[in-house]
Computed example of a mutant assay.
Amino acid sequence: MAATTICASGLKGGLVSSFHGTWGTSMVGDDYYALMKSVPRYVTVGKPVRSAPSMKNVNEGKGVFAPLVVVTRNIVGKKRFNQLRGKAIALHSQVITEFCKSIGADGKQRQGLIRLAKKNGERLGFLA
């Protein structure tokens, strides 16, 4: 960006700029060619490419209870384990809902508590 100052003596010779040249020639030379190399030559038209959504736990394999969860999943089997996990999550959500009813919390607070329980379960390794 060019810095421009105006001297106290007025406009007669008082306009000083660090920019030398004209706007037409400001992008000629090495800078122009470097910029042209960094810009792609063609643009694809169509749907943007998206990666597939991942439901994977970012803390998978981490947490205090992760080894126990992995061993249990290997013993019981993946399908049966996911059924049991779903039932446990549903029961835990019901407990949170009943707790919110007993203290008079609204639905937004209840959802916040359920999200907090999920984050804690991920950190502890229950969702490994």
Rank of each mutant, 00 (worst) to 15 (best):
A90W: 05
E60H: 13
G24W: 01
G13L: 02
G125A: 03
G77K: 07
P67F: 02
N74L: 11
S93K: 13
V49E: 04
T72C: 06
G61E: 09
R85V: 03
L116K: 12
L124P: 00
Q94W: 04
A90S: 15
A2Y: 08
R41E: 15
G13Y: 04
H20Y: 08
L127F: 15
S18W: 00
L127W: 07
S51Q: 12
L113D: 07
A8C: 12
S51I: 02
N74E: 15
E60R: 11
R115V: 07
K87A: 15
A66F: 02
K47R: 06
V71I: 09
A90V: 06
M36F: 04
G14E: 08
M55Y: 15
F99K: 10
A34G: 09
S26C: 13
G86S: 14
A66E: 06
L68P: 00
V64L: 12
S9N: 15
A34M: 13
V16M: 10
T22E: 07
G10N: 05
V43G: 05
T25P: 00
L116D: 03
K108N: 11
G29A: 04
L35P: 01
V70M: 11
K101G: 10
G112E: 06
I103S: 11
E60S: 14
V71R: 06
G10A: 13
D30R: 12
S38V: 04
E98P: 01
G86Q: 01
K79V: 14
T97Q: 14
E122Y: 05
L113S: 03
S18L: 07
V95F: 08
I75T: 08
Y33I: 06
A3R: 13
S18C: 10
V71E: 10
I103W: 05
M36K: 15
N120Y: 08
T44N: 02
V70Q: 14
K87I: 12
K87F: 13
M1S: 12
L84N: 12
Y32K: 11
S93H: 11
L127P: 01
T44F: 00
L113V: 03
